[in-house]
């Protein structure tokens, strides 16, 4: 064996091919089957997509690097399920390009944050976390309240996600900017359009509360309020056990 190596280490290309061969085995065996084995991701009927406003909020969550302190994955451990809710299923992040499971909890897990607190609480918390949780060490995100949300690129973003397999319809892509506005202005024709395209369960609200202008705060709150609510499968599974 060492004699063989004695010869191998005299050949640049042979050595190079050796490294490529030996290093690729692990990844191929562990990753490739995840795309082909059907049970990897559960099939559920009620899985919905993010609305344009929620997706815009998700893009802000990504831009601000929230994954540095917040996970979005509840493990199959008793204390986690009791603290945060039913453990996370693969299907719940099926439309998450990329996933935000995270690796660190300087703050709590957010996988089931949606609906846990009111929009007002979320907004107040983002403006200054210490106003509502005095011990918190989260940065203040008051600047989101001042930043108007850019909606002109949302159609393009939804179209790109559709290319990646998220089932947005032509109508959803075409109306993305209007729907972002509509989800934050209840009782208007725009809001009705959102309801028609994304379902009655869609969370239509004034979110950040500033009437007339759509801010990044609206989008982020809309996203936080949908976390864990794209499908009911995890709750049904927990109830069935």
């Amino acid at each position: 064996m060492f004699g063989l190596h004695y010869r191998l280490e005299r050949k640049t290309i042979g050595f190079l091919l050796g490294i490529i061969g030996v290093s690729s085995i692990g990844g191929l065996i562990e990753i490739a089957p995840l795309f082909t084995i059907d049970e990897t991701v559960e099939q559920v009927a009620d899985m919905r997509v993010y609305t344009p406003l929620e997706q815009a909020g998700r893009d802000i969550y990504i831009r601000e690097g929230c994954y540095g302190c917040h996970s979005q994955l509840i493990r199959t451990l008793r204390d986690e399920v009791e603290r945060y809710g039913p453990f996370s299923l693969a299907v719940e992040s099926k439309y998450d390009h990329p996933m935000q499971w995270g690796s660190k909890r300087t703050g709590p897990d957010l996988a089931r944050m949606g609906g846990k607190y009111s929009d007002d609480w979320q907004r107040a918390h983002l403006i200054n976390p210490r106003d509502v949780v005095p011990e918190s060490n989260m940065p203040a995100y008051a600047f989101l309240q001042r930043a108007l949300l850019r909606t002109d690129n949302l159609g393009l973003r939804l179209a790109t996600l559709r290319q990646l397999g998220v089932p947005y319809t032509d109508e959803m892509v075409a109306n993305a900017a209007a729907d972002a506005q509509g989800q934050a202005t209840p009782d208007t024709a725009l809001a009705e359009g959102v309801r028609r395209r994304y379902g009655d369960a869609t969370n239509i609200s004034t979110f950040a509360g500033a009437a007339g202008k759509l801010t990044e705060m609206d989008a982020l709150v809309a996203y936080l309020q949908i976390l864990g609510r794209l499908t009911n499968a995890a709750h049904e599974m927990a109830a069935g056990e």
Partner: peptide, 18 residues
């Protein structure tokens, strides 16, 4: 500047930690 990763969810998680 914005892009969306090719993989999502569990496959993305595995690729990311690989």
């Amino acid at each position: 500047s914005k892009s969306y990763s090719l993989f999502s969810g569990v496959q993305d998680a595995m690729t990311q930690w690989w």
